[in-house]
């Protein structure tokens, strides 16, 4: 430590001895200004180069990993339903229902309505931010199938509401029995209507599924069915 200090001291003395005074105050200012400009320029160039390389890399990765959500939905439907899709309904004309959205609406050759509905996270609806997206197949006024498409509900907890055994309760239910209140859908009583069971410990996720099914049925009714 002492050696290091002595060495530094010697260097300092040497530097002081070798110091050549600037000609005048103005040139001293210019000297430091030039140094600062050089430093700033170096910073800008280095950061700019890193940013440029980063953006090129991201552009290349984006090109190869671009995903077509509609194609993903069509692939999933293809694995679920054997009949070919004949019509694609414009979903922009369908009004969204209580924090839900209709992501896609198709009509199959055999007349089945295939609706992809998403319930977004809201008050007592869905536990995780991604929300719940389900595929609802309705044929001749009856719900034929409800299948989970994507969600991020906690495994072993909310995820239980997306399992086949829970979603099966909607199969064969007449769409007329699905009550669609305009206000708070959770506290509105559903006497004489189909009352889906709610899983203990997965209430928010069950509500999410129920809301998405209601949104799909509402979209189905909006087409004059």
């Amino acid at each position: 430590m002492v050696d290091l200090l002595n060495e530094k001291k010697e260097n300092l003395v040497e530097e002081t001895n070798n110091f050549e005074p600037m000609k005048d105050n103005g040139s001293l200012k210019r000297h430091f200004k030039g140094k600062k400009i050089n430093e700033s320029l170096k910073i800008i160039i280095v950061l700019g180069l890193i940013a440029m390389v980063a953006s090129i890399m991201l552009a290349v990765v984006n090109f190869y990993t671009k995903i077509d959500e509609n194609q993903q939905i069509l692939d999933e439907i293809g694995s679920l339903y054997s009949s070919e899709i004949s019509t694609t309904v414009d979903v922009s004309s369908i009004s969204n229902y209580l924090g839900t959205e209709i992501k896609a609406y198709y009509i199959a050759d055999d007349g089945a309505n295939i609706i992809v509905a998403k319930a977004n996270k809201g008050d007592k609806v869905c536990y995780n931010a991604t929300g719940i997206t389900i595929i609802v197949i309705i044929k001749e006024g009856l719900i034929e199938k409800v299948v989970s498409f994507s969600h991020s509900e906690t495994p072993g907890l909310g995820e239980r509401a997306l399992r086949e055994e829970y979603l099966n309760q909607y199969e064969g239910i007449n769409t007329d029995l699905i009550f669609i209140p305009e206000g708070d859908f959770i506290s509105t009583p559903e006497f004489n209507y189909f009352n889906p069971s709610v899983i203990t410990g997965a209430t928010y996720s069950s509500n999410g599924v129920s809301l998405a099914v209601k949104a799909a049925v509402k979209a189905y009714r909006s087409r004059g069915n």
């Binding site: 991201l58 990765v61 984006n62 190869y64 990993t65 671009k66 995903i67 993903q72 995780n128 931010a129 991604t130 994507s150 969600h151 991020s152 495994p155």
Partner: peptide, 17 residues
Amino acid sequence: EMVVRAFLPDLYDKLGL
């Protein structure tokens, strides 16, 4: 994020934010 989203969508949904 891009790679997981493209090739492992289930994991992407679960890891979320």
